[in-house]
Simulated assay, not measured.
Amino acid sequence: MKRRVILVLACLIAVGALCGCGARQPDTSLPKLLIGSDTYPPYVYMDDNGDITGLDVELAREAFRRMGYEAEFTSIDWERKKALVDAGEIDCIWGCFSMNGREEDYRWAGPYMVSRQVVAVNRHSDIQAIEDLAGRSIAVQATTKPEELFLTRPTDDIPEVKAVFSLEDRSVQYAALESGYVDAIAAHEEAITQYMEDYGADFRFLAPPLLTAGIGVAFSNNDTRGLAGELTKTLAEMRQDGTMLAIVSKYIEHPESYLEVETLGR
Rank of each mutant, 00 (worst) to 15 (best):
K81R: 15
K81V: 04
K82Y: 00
A83E: 14
A83T: 05
A87P: 04
A87G: 10
G88D: 12
G88Q: 08
E89Y: 02
I90S: 01
I90M: 01
I93D: 03
I93S: 02
G95I: 10
C96F: 07
F97A: 11
F97D: 07
S98F: 11
S98E: 11
M99V: 12
N100R: 15
N100T: 08
G101H: 12
R102Q: 12
E103D: 11
E103Y: 11
E104I: 00
D105W: 14
Y106V: 05
Y106T: 06
R107G: 01
W108H: 04
A109E: 02
A109R: 06
A109I: 05
P111V: 08
Y112R: 03
Y112E: 04
M113K: 15
M113R: 15
M113I: 14
M113A: 14
V114E: 02
V114D: 04
V114S: 10
V114Q: 10
S115M: 13
R116N: 13
R116K: 15
Q117A: 08
V118G: 01
V118M: 06
V119H: 01
V119Q: 01
V121I: 06
N122S: 13
N122G: 09
N122V: 10
R123W: 09
H124I: 04
D126C: 01
D126L: 05
I127D: 05
Q128W: 03
Q128D: 15
Q128M: 12
A129F: 02
I130Y: 01
I130R: 05
I130L: 15
E131T: 15
D132P: 00
A134W: 05
G135F: 09
G135H: 08
R136V: 13
R136W: 07
R136I: 13
S137L: 06
A139W: 04
A139R: 07
V140K: 11
Q141C: 02
A142Q: 13
A142L: 13
T143I: 07
T143H: 13
K145F: 03
E147D: 03
E148H: 14
E148C: 06
L149D: 04
F150K: 09
F150T: 10
L151T: 14
L151N: 10
T152P: 11
T152W: 05
P154W: 03
P154T: 09
T155S: 14
D156Y: 10
D157I: 11
D157L: 10
D157Q: 12
I158S: 04
I158H: 06
P159M: 12
P159F: 08
P159H: 09
